[in-house]
Nucleic acid binder design. Structure first.
Lengths: 131, 131
DNA sequence: TTCATTTGCTTGATATTCTTAGCGCGCTAT
DNA sequence: ATAGCGCGCTAAGAATATCAAGCAAATGAA
């Protein structure tokens, strides 16, 4: 079993770096996250978290982020240093990066909907559409 | 399916009452617990917890207690008000077919748009907040 | 009784999370 | 230029988890 951390040349990303990476992946601003999480995570606080100035964000915060980003909550908990294991869920299996979507940890429903959207997108391909 | 709740006619005890009950069940003193948990839970603090003077003990504390008492950690987490249910339990079984996307061979642009759509989808899925 | 120990508990201090307000930078448009 | 907006970030404070120390009451010897 490999470490739950990503590899990718960088030895070991901290929770902050991981979260920052994901957020940039999603192309969201700090304030966008604040909005999207319904103020559960203020932009200021998220900044502190991403810069590792907070040692252990509460599970609530982590959960909000995991939901928004659609990533593994338990993984975040582990990264934050919360010992999750003995109680029953030591699963936490991490698949390698199959695609960028691996990080998004889609639910079955989400995946279905994503596939539908993919079809739609490919049928309706527009030239030069850059948001 | 089945309520994650305990049995034992627990009715609706608070976390504190629950923990106090368990400790008396085990016939341990506050200081005995402090000892047994290797000072992870001080007797003073445990007293405050049992008397519901602490609103949300950290997962670490809860974990130490769950291990000592041999009770469910996640149950304690829930009692402490840590939302473990919103999107959690059932979708521990998500990943698995994300590989599907790999086979679709997304272009960079497609991937970007898919990510945006995911994000949109996630925001939409948000249940009504508690105003 | 008196002393020692142990009980649950409170108090005061410290550390940490998390919030609100605001700064300076880089844009874009007038 | 310059006014405005959104960006990431920080400073300062409020709230709260946690610890160390100590207290009164109960118990159990001697």
């Amino acid at each position: 079993m490999h470490t739950p951390n990503d590899d990718r040349a960088t030895t070991k990303r901290t929770l902050g770096q991981y979260l920052a990476g994901i957020r940039m992946d999603r192309k969201m601003s700090l304030r966008a996250v604040e909005e999207a999480t319904n103020k559960q995570v203020s932009n200021a606080y998220l900044s502190q978290i991403e810069n590792d100035k907070i040692q252990q964000p509460s599970p609530n915060i982590l959960h909000a982020l995991s939901e928004l980003y659609a990533i593994s909550f338990e993984n975040l908990m582990e990264m934050a240093g919360y010992l999750m294991g003995t109680a029953g869920r030591s699963d936490t299996e991490r698949h390698g990066r199959i695609a960028t979507f691996a990080e998004h940890n889609l639910t079955a429903d989400e995946e279905t909907e994503m596939l539908q959207y993919l079809q739609f997108m490919r049928n309706r391909k527009k030239p030069g559409d850059k948001t």
